[in-house]
Design a protein around this nucleic acid. Structure first.
Length: 269
DNA sequence: TCGATCCTGTAG
DNA sequence: CTACAGGATCGA
């Protein structure tokens, strides 16, 4: 489900729906999703008021009264949203927060790979300190990207997905950004010429920026986003289909255990 | 830096 | 049945 743009939409939705709500009770259906913490830890949230929700990279931080914070990572299939009544919770609900007004904050996650933890301000600071720059921030400049890539000899694609270097680029948008900037995903990060780094910087911001806008539009007006803009997909998942620029076949390879899609004709020196 | 791992679900 | 899935971490 979520890359950065979808996480961003989840955060906005949650902020609008649940700010100022008070927690009545918390039910951990699947302790694995809060491991290594203990379900009893979450009792501290009973009676706490939700003050704010924000995003950093693909993490979600929910601030409650009484100095309590919940940190969420949706991983592959997680989702977080409010339903009108706790009895509506779906089958794959792993954790749910019954609110005082009888609504329910649902943490749904079919593969159960995501994590939710009760944390302190200091824990959050530590999590954030381990992350690279936000790709959509003004501080993320072409010069910074060049610095990041300069010393790394690994193939570019896994490098831009490394959250410690740049925080928030996932598997889909990594392939997409490299296609837009005509960079071979197998090329060593250090060997990318300066003008291609500039192009990559532009592509990352464009691809992610567009996706943030459409993810939000999809939430505000479901079904109105044109297919061509809904995911910004030019190469991802299009193995053996014609490249949109040159009509040659898109290839699929595996890097770091993840699928990479690219055009061997457009993406080369 | 690769491969295994955490899990369930779906497509072929 | 196998392959694969939008993520991240761990140990060899």
């Amino acid at each position: 489900m979520p890359e950065l743009p979808e996480v961003d939409a989840v955060v906005r939705r949650l902020r609008e729906a649940a700010s100022s709500s008070t927690i009545h009770s918390v039910t951990i259906e699947r302790p694995g999703n809060i491991a290594p913490q203990n379900p009893s830890t979450f009792r501290a949230l009973h009676g706490a008021k939700l003050l704010n929700v924000r995003r950093r990279a693909k993490y979600i931080f929910i601030e409650f009264s009484n100095q309590l914070h919940v940190q969420v990572h949706l991983r592959m299939t997680g989702n977080l949203y409010v339903l009108p009544d706790y009895r509506f919770r779906p089958h794959n609900t792993r954790i749910w927060f019954r609110l005082k007004d009888n609504r329910v904050l649902i943490y749904e996650d079919s593969r159960a790979l995501g994590r939710m933890h009760l944390v302190t301000r200091e824990d959050i600071a530590a999590t954030e300190a381990a992350l690279g720059p936000e790709p959509l921030d003004a501080a993320f400049t072409p010069a910074l990207l060049q610095t990041i890539l300069h010393s790394v000899k690994s193939p570019i694609k896994p490098v831009i997905m490394d959250q410690r270097r740049i925080a928030g680029i996932g598997n889909i948008y990594a392939s997409e950004a490299l296609w837009h900037s005509r960079i071979d995903p197998r090329l060593s990060a250090r060997d990318i010429p300066k003008r291609k780094i500039t192009a990559l910087h532009t592509a990352i911001q464009k691809v992610l920026g567009n996706a943030v806008v459409s993810a939000y539009a999809e939430y505000a007006q479901p079904g109105t986003t044109p297919e061509s803009e809904s995911f910004g997909v030019a190469v991802y998942g299009r193995k053996d289909e014609p490249c949109l620029k040159c009509k040659k076949s898109i290839l699929r390879i595996v890097q770091g255990g993840r699928s990479t899609f690219f055009c061997p004709n457009c993406q080369r020196p």
